[in-house]
Amino acid sequence: MPEVLTTVTMTVNGQSVTRSIEPRVLLVHFLREELGLTGTHVGCDTSQCGACTVLLDGEAVKSCTVLAVQAQGSAVTTIEGLEGTRLHPVQEGFWAKHGLQCGFCTPGAMMTAAYLLSQNPHPTEEEIREGLDGVVCRCTGYETIVRSVQQAAALMSEASETSGAEEVG
């Protein structure tokens, strides 16, 4: 197959990036291979597992189902860009409530949770479990993920306070 390269420009975690790539390159591979953002994982090839979830213009998408060229001009947030100067409440929640074991599904689970809470800041347990339907986690049994999201929701609703976040390396 002849390699016809195309130029793509997008904003990733607040920084503008431009690369020449094959048009068939998936967004997840673009992030991992081209930009070295390996926090976004690949867990399947049928868009079932959610390990690759990122925010594309604020919406949670499975980056294994999006071509990098489709993100032309868009803003992408990956797990590496979720935190600011402090951990994001979702990260705090997952840490405090043991929302991860092996950590492989975790970036995708956290991006899914961040999106869920951006849409519904006070979800019920049922809504959280439904909202996690696109996430496959083989380790946790999900209950601690549910609690993590609840914790994140609580932290976000007391967001005016500066406490609750811990500085990490």
Binding site: R32, G39, H41, T78, L87, Q91, L100, F104, T106
Partner: peptide, 14 residues
Amino acid sequence: DIRLIRGRGQYTDD
């Protein structure tokens, strides 16, 4: 978790 929740894990494929 300090590395894993920040996308800094070092899995083989990374």
